Simulated assay, not measured.
Amino acid sequence: MSATAFGVTKEGLPVTRYTLESRSGITVGVLDRGAIIQSILVPCPDGPVDVVAGFDDISGYEACDAYLGALVGRHANRLGGAFIEIDGKRWPVTANEGAKQLHGGLHGFDQKMFAAEQPAPNCLVLRCVSPDGEEGFPGEVTLQATYTLSDEGALSLDYQATSTRDTVINLTNHSYFNLNGGGSVLQHRLWLAASRFTPIDADALPTGEIRDVAGTPFDFCTAKQIGADLDACDEQLALGHGYDHNFVLDKASGELATVAELCGDQTGIRMRCVTTCPGLQLYTANFLQSPPLVKGEKTIAPREAVCLETQYFPNSMNCPAFEKPIVRAGGLYHERTIYEFIK
């Protein structure tokens, strides 16, 4: 594993890029700011293909609010009403998307500097602390994120966190994938092990309903192109401006299972997603504004990337039927997601 300078933050803090390299030729670049996955290079006959969107220096990430590649939390996705409630006690949290919170507020883990160390080859451990009361959340949370790249090219993201008080923790990685290296992802083929999803309201918040995907544009139980039904006349697609929905994964809670497979139509690169999490957010980059200049002097526009964000369900604190990501004082949050790349 190598380490190189990646610029300086607005606060004057130096950022380092760590590179993991597998024997299969896959390389992964990770930043110690936001625990960001900055690049994933997959070897192809015409040269390596970078399958995640990102920037060439830290200033690009600071100027963009799309969470490209970042570790997101304390609570990934949306919290309606911008509050959490545990055992009848309510804490208001920072509202940063209208009256709700998105991805942990204004200063979530995506904004933090992490302490990095390499305990073994192709293994990077990133650590940080979120103080008690940060963004309104109770408890001092100590987070350890371990990124491991196998010889075969599987990238494992292992999240462990503890809190000094009862709190909520719901973490995800927010990488924007394009297995062609650029252009539209609507011809990518996607399979999801999810026979149900959670419909949203006009504020993009799950309503608490769990609905079957059968007969709807949300049915990916058999692989199909992402764009196959994207323009269908469907209220949910209209509310999300495309896919921006949580899928209920067909597996036992806590079970590590394969839940998705994405295939690039031009490169043939396949990516499998394996996770312990109960849900997965499918997002077709609908809200990218003023297409930002990204790596290699390219731009990225809506529907030119897709996110597969493993998670607890959004708005779960307001939905009685949803499993709550509550972590008790002294207890352990531990979830794992693996992205396997096959060529």
Rank of each mutant, 00 (worst) to 15 (best):
L192K: 10
E261W: 00
G25K: 10
H241L: 12
E309V: 13
H188N: 11
P43K: 04
Q144C: 01
A70T: 15
Y18Q: 05
G330I: 00
C307G: 08
M317A: 10
A53R: 02
S175K: 04
K100T: 11
L237D: 00
Q101F: 00
D56L: 05
G98D: 11
Q111K: 14
A145D: 01
D166P: 15
S150H: 12
N170T: 01
Y312W: 13
Y61H: 08
T27Q: 12
G81K: 09
T94Q: 03
A99Y: 11
I86G: 01
R303Q: 13
G268S: 10
T167K: 13
T198E: 05
G7W: 05
Q111R: 08
D231V: 10
A120N: 11
E85P: 03
L20R: 07
G139W: 07
V306P: 06
P325S: 15
L237H: 02
P131K: 01
Y67M: 06
C128S: 13
P320S: 10
F83L: 09
K343A: 07
F197P: 05
D32N: 14
E309M: 00
E255F: 00
G242S: 04
D46G: 11
E235T: 14
L230V: 15
S59Q: 14
L332G: 13
G69D: 02
S195L: 02
E117K: 11
A305G: 15
K343G: 03
F114H: 05
G88E: 15
V259F: 02
T299G: 05
E140A: 05
D201K: 06
I169W: 00
L256Y: 15
T27Y: 07
M271T: 14
A305V: 13
V259L: 03
G182E: 08
G88S: 07
E261I: 06
E134D: 14
F177E: 07
Y61N: 01
F114M: 03
A154R: 12
V141N: 02
A95T: 11
W91D: 04
L149V: 10
Q236N: 12
F218W: 03
G80I: 09
A214D: 11
T167R: 09
K343Q: 13
Q144K: 07
C221H: 10
K251H: 10
V93Y: 00
